[in-house]
């Protein structure tokens, strides 16, 4: 009796495990973001474009990426500043770019321009990237917007403003 019971239970368990083996494993691997520019703690000059440079890659297929900038004035995220907002406006931005049909790509552009009236101070720059399956990764950078930051154009004199190239 005892043995029969054991075999019965074992066969039930085996049925379950065969079922398990028949599944296709979906892609749960996140895309990889290598953000070269801006770097953590970088100061960006108000009124100029942002030098953005990154590598995106995925084991299957990329989806799209998003650049988000918002202020970090009191060390806490996305607080609405109500005081000295007369002349300047806290800068915020959300801009997405398509990466579908790519597996890895190098991105370099100067699309984002910080407007003249942006309030100087501490900001967050966050880059999100999804793959075709919906896996998402993100990289966050602490940046400073200031009026007297070094202009990046002097730094990268040799750089052409080339767009996506692989």
């Amino acid at each position: 009796m005892g043995k029969n019971i054991f075999f019965y239970v074992l066969s039930v368990v085996l049925c379950f495990s065969f079922y398990a083996c028949s599944e296709d494993d979906a892609d749960t691997t996140k895309p990889v973001i290598m953000l070269d520019e801006p770097e953590d703690g970088d100061s960006l000059r108000i009124g100029e474009s942002v030098h953005f440079e990154a590598d995106f890659s995925d084991d299957e297929a990329l989806g799209s990426y998003l650049i988000e900038i918002h202020n970090n004035f009191d060390g806490h995220n996305h607080k609405v500043s109500s005081t000295r907002a007369e002349e300047t406006v806290p800068f915020s931005l959300k801009k997405s770019y398509d990466l579908s049909n790519l597996r890895n790509t190098h991105v370099h552009h100067h699309d984002i321009v910080i407007p003249e009236n942006a309030t100087p101070g501490a900001y967050h720059l966050v880059v999100y990237c999804t793959d075709a399956a919906g896996n998402q990764s993100m990289v966050a950078r602490d940046i400073i917007l200031s009026l007297d930051a070094e202009s990046h154009h002097h730094h990268h004199d040799g750089d052409d403003d080339d767009d996506d190239h692989e």
Binding site: S64, K94, S96, M138
Partner: peptide, 14 residues
């Protein structure tokens, strides 16, 4: 389920 669509809200991702 993730939709792959970006949210327009700050700090939200997709």
């Amino acid at each position: 389920h993730p939709t792959g669509q970006w949210s327009m809200l700050p700090d939200a991702g997709q």
